[in-house]
Design a protein around this nucleic acid. Structure first.
Lengths: 341, 341
DNA sequence: TCGTAATATCGAACCGGTTCGATAATTATT
DNA sequence: AATAATTATCGAACCGGTTCGATATTACGA
């Protein structure tokens, strides 16, 4: 067995409490004693055991990261990166991140993630959409909670959001600057707050440029954001009207779907149709043509969520706040200057 | 504060040890007492605290999952899924998975992941290539270890591997069945064991069909498996000879690179060049044309690794074993019948 | 009916840290 | 020089479980 604090204490001829004081920089320790203890610590290659620390400190040293089963199964590259961001930042706070998924059908506290039942987390980060009941159940247990890319004002929860409106505004303005005026929008239901915001960004940019929005160009269905959403959406749009010269999409997956549908109709991207996405997932730069998109700093979302949750753990009395993470337009080759036919 | 085992004990008029016996199905407990205790447990909504259990049980209840920083930064969709597989299986064993990355430049035990220093894991899973020293350092600490898709025979470590040879054999045979004979191979260095095995699978399939392998068709460079590998590799190949009619690639990323290079040279995929990948990452089905590839059951790799590590934890004396996870050929549209020009 | 075995429950000790009040030693104050 | 304040160290108790030997009760066999 490896050494304990008492081994160190014996060897350094002090009491365990003194060793503890050295380890945690607490109370009075004579400099001479301190170095003596530190030397023994080095000699024995001693590190306090996590499980022991956790028990006395009445904390678990873990953060929970919850993802909707739907995203989980798809291994959504977006949320994966968000998770990596939390993991990275958690190290700075001497915390670990426990990952789990929660089912769409969540309805009772009995289905709460294991780490909550076992009080094995000091706080929880939820990424993306989950059932509202889950959020309520967590809040009612007085576990610090932070939502990433989800939640609304009246939930009274700390949130870390994407600057959706600004992102789509940038994307739309980019198309306008390229001479496009017939600009469509393919998005999802307005249930998810991001959906609403992104649509607003589109409207705002169009308004700012005094371009009238043709309702036929707008396609919002209730399917979750995905390739299918883009594919069916654009297909639907084509049933109604002539294709616009450019389309703003809810996210990259949607854009891939739009491009697929366009290809089916022999509409060339970007020559006949400019397409812009949102997120900048890995595939976007691999695709042909590489996708013009709004880059979301996914790791930053995660990192900021950890910062927020640590703040909430330390100051539980503080009111919940909302942080927005900036975005950046990445111009690639799925958009080009409008050429009248 | 939430209730403890003593609260339950008091309420049920038994001693804590009896409650513990009920919880763990150990020793003799009268059925009547058992139900009484169980009722109180339900009433108080009691769940034993993880940190307390961990301390007495002298275990952490955690598994460590280590990924090379290189893969980590790219959020490799492959290893992400492997991780998800471990997480999922870990639940069945009442374990949590702690994720971390380790730097390419690892050289000293001081750089060991935090969870090892703090003895916060009962076993470690390493996915993909890492510095050999890291493996040695972990083994020398007597921490159960399982490697996924890495390691060789003389390492004497439990491994979970992909059936690489069979996979590439299937892929190559598929091309041969389509009438191709000029079949190239674009792979990486033979340092990674998978690289070697996949190349062997190609050679074997060619041999079995009595097709002579033209060395010019084979391109192996030392770049890590990536789009660049495929791009440069195919570019190099074209400098040497006429393009083959089909190419087997080390993995999907490599295949994407080959397709990019082919496009640059106006070689149409699949009309003029059939391309087959390996892994079946998400992007492969999104691409145009959708990639024919060898599907690796990534979650199974992770799940099997957890099963192996649990086995190693419980039977440390057992000799390390190697498991192979099967593969499946997924035919999409990046390959088609050979048409002589 | 007695002795032994099986059943049932308990209390104390322990896991490896941290905390905090008690105490001792040193220094400052007047 | 006596007292107060500061510095330094310690020991015991505690966190919330589990373990295990001791003890009490019941069942069984001869």
């Amino acid at each position: 067995m490896s050494s304990t604090i008492r081994d160190v204490a014996n060897r350094a001829k002090v009491s365990p409490s003194t060793v503890s004081a050295v380890l945690n920089d607490k109370g009075y320790v004579h400099p001479k004693t301190r170095t003596r203890v530190l030397n023994v610590i080095r000699e024995l290659n001693y590190t306090p055991r996590r499980s022991a620390r956790n028990l006395t400190n009445q904390r678990s040293g873990n953060l929970g990261f919850i993802l909707n089963e739907r995203y989980f199964n798809r291994a959504e590259p977006f949320y994966t990166r968000v998770f990596l961001g939390t993991e990275f930042q958690a190290r700075n706070h001497d915390l670990y991140v426990l990952f789990t998924s929660v089912d769409e059908s969540y309805s009772s506290p009995k289905q709460l993630p294991r780490f909550l039942q076992e009080q094995n987390v000091d706080g929880v980060i939820i990424a993306g959409e989950v059932p509202d009941v889950l959020i309520e159940d967590i809040l009612s247990r007085d576990v610090p909670l932070v939502l990433i890319d989800f939640g609304n004002e009246d939930m009274n929860v700390t949130r870390v959001l994407i600057d959706n409106k600004q992102g789509v505004r940038l994307a739309t303005r980019h198309l306008i600057a390229q001479g496009h005026t017939a600009i469509g929008f393919v998005g999802g239901s307005s249930y998810h707050p991001s959906g609403k915001e992104r649509f607003r960004g589109y409207c705002q940019a169009m308004g700012e440029a005094n371009i009238e929005v043709n309702k036929d160009w707008i396609e919002c269905s209730d399917i979750p954001a995905s390739m299918e959403l883009g594919d069916f959406g654009f297909e639907n749009l084509l049933k109604r009207c002539q294709p616009p010269s450019a389309v703003v999409c809810f996210n990259d997956a949607t854009a891939f779907g739009v491009i697929r549908a366009a290809r089916r109709h022999s509409i060339k991207v970007p020559t006949q149709l400019s397409v812009v996405g949102f997120d900048d997932v890995e595939a976007s730069s691999i695709m042909h043509p590489p996708l013009t998109t709004v880059k979301v700093f996914k790791e930053d979302l995660g990192a900021e969520a950890v910062r927020s949750i640590v703040d909430r753990i330390q100051n539980p009395e503080k009111r919940p706040i909302t942080t927005r993470i900036g975005v950046e337009l990445i111009v690639r080759q799925s958009t080009e200057e409008f050429k009248p036919r």
